[in-house]
Amino acid sequence: MRLINIKPGRASASLLMLLPFAAVLIAYAIGSEIRLSENPSDKLLPAPGTIWDTAVRLTTEADRRSGRILFWHDTWASLKRLGLGIGISAFTALVIGLLIGLLPLMRSFLSQFVAVLSMIPPLALLPILFIVFGLGELSKVVLIVVGTLPFLIRDLSQRTLEIPQELLVKAQTLGASSWVIAIRVALPQVLPRLIQGVRLSLGPAWLFLIAAEAIASDLGLGYRIFLVRRYLAMDVILTYVIWITFLAFVIDWALRWISRRTFPWMETGL
């Protein structure tokens, strides 16, 4: 039987899915064990048990100086920045993308400009953002917006262009104005694409968030990681990394769930 025709059953599919996770955990545990047996005060690969203890301490014990549980404050600060940045980005991209996709005038006016803008490496703009917007929340949110907006605009304008011409003509023969076509035909068909685009943008958004927090911040997940790096606190760093991964995964999963629930007419799940 050809390899391309061999499909795993339900049980073996689950097993295969878990395998790489288990492999990484076991490899880490072995590596950690080897290093710790040579030098019990080794800091590079803390034992899984140590990481667990650190995680419990970070999430339950308040900071001695400020009396706050920094872990949750970091999380809240970062999620706020991320949500604000992605939210502004998504909304702006939706409006501009629809304009470019539907109106030939706007396409001539903006599409090349956006294409050039999207080539600017956002991190190269970070110093400018800090200078212009200061070191507060604004510059971090703006970095996320600058980093994700051009991609989202290009994605959404392309998706709008891909709406079959037949549907736009049909709407016109039903007497729809440009505005009605935008809100009743194009918008509902592009919204699931927006969610898909946001899911793809979340990776870069986290990258920009952590970069901005690492450089100038006093709270946030990225800030904490770079702060404890000075003490080689691998257990804290790893806890935060696992937590960020978990958050990103949950957000992605939630967006997919929303997309499925809200747009049942999309036959295939995104």
Partner: peptide, 27 residues
């Protein structure tokens, strides 16, 4: 048309209503 003649994001009933409602300001 041969295909793409109905709006995929509207139910059958909404597609029929669209024939009357799309000419209005909010569709």
């Amino acid at each position: 048309f041969q295909k793409y003649s109905v709006f995929p994001h509207l139910t059958v009933r909404e597609n029929i209503i669209a024939g009357e409602s799309f000419r209005h300001r909010w569709g």
